[in-house]
């Protein structure tokens, strides 16, 4: 039990297949993964390896065919407010203002208190002045920040991020990473990040997990022992990057 207490997310022997026109497609082939409480784990892998399937299983939107998903040692059977998913396309409701989006997520509780809480997180992602703006009036980077604020306002224990910044341009991506680190420093979450960008993984994560091609299992695990803020030009960082790329077959 003592071991389980630090295990926030635990996937054991997770298998998942999808039915396609050419017969069943085995995406996850008995995958094991453990994420400790407060840890930031990045998953990299070849495209089409099933990274998105993995995160959907982890956050409860997809049920595995075999194996189990444990959150805090308890089997998970569906999505919950404890772990919020931030996806590539984003899911900020376009028919609500920034503030309304946050208030909708908060859902329960006293309205005045929720408004105050929403404001705190709008400030945290530096969107003050845009509370009453609609998403289509915001830029891509601002929209991502709304998404992050809306996830954080729930004080989730886990953030599931599926290529959250890949729709942004390179400069904005870099800025969002720094921003995310700043926010995470204030609030300690367990984070599971899916990315195809090895540099992004090294920039952000405590541990990098490399997925194998389909049917996916964990192929290798790398610790990222460098303190923040990380300089990607440092030789040991470059070395780590090369090892990871080699693992990916580059």
């Amino acid at each position: 039990m003592t071991k389980n207490a630090t295990e926030k997310i635990s996937l054991r022997g997770v298998k998942k297949s999808f039915i396609t026109d050419d017969g069943p497609l085995e995406v996850l082939g008995g995958l094991d993964l453990t994420v400790a409480t407060g840890q930031f784990v990045a998953i990299v892998g070849p495209s089409g390896a099933g990274k998105t399937t993995l995160i959907n299983v982890a956050c409860g939107f997809t049920l595995p065919d075999a194996g189990s998903v444990l959150i805090d040692g308890v089997p998970r059977h569906g999505p919950s407010r404890k772990g919020i998913l931030i996806s590539q396309q984003g899911s900020v409701f376009p028919w609500m203002t920034v503030r309304e989006n946050l208030l909708f997520a908060l859902d329960r509780g006293a309205k005045a208190k929720n408004i105050e809480l929403a404001q705190r997180y709008i400030d945290l992602v530096k969107l003050q002045g845009f509370e009453n703006s609609y998403p289509h009036e915001l830029s891509g980077g601002m929209l991502k920040r709304v998404e992050i604020a809306r996830a954080l306002v729930l004080k989730p224990e886990i953030l599931y991020m599926d290529e959250p910044f890949s729709a942004l341009d390179a400069l904005m991506r870099l800025r969002m990473r720094t921003e995310l680190l700043r926010i995470l420093e204030e609030e300690h979450h367990t984070v599971l990040l899916i990315t195809h960008d090895v540099e992004e993984a090294i920039h952000l994560a405590d541990q990098i997990v490399v997925m194998s091609p389909r049917p996916a299992v964990i192929q290798a695990t790398f610790a990222v022992p460098f303190p923040h803020p990380r300089q990607l030009s440092m030789p040991e960082v470059q070395q780590l990057k090369e090892s990871i790329l080699r693992e990916l077959g580059m």
């Binding site: 999505p79 899911s91 859902d107």
Partner: peptide, 27 residues
């Protein structure tokens, strides 16, 4: 589906999803 998923993720269901997600989405 991403909008319905988000609502499910926040634990919002039933009439509140109808009023705040489904109806505005189709409007």
């Amino acid at each position: 589906p991403r909008y319905l998923r988000a609502a499910a993720n926040f634990g919002v269901s039933g009439p509140r999803v109808l009023v705040h997600v489904i109806i505005p989405a189709i409007l």
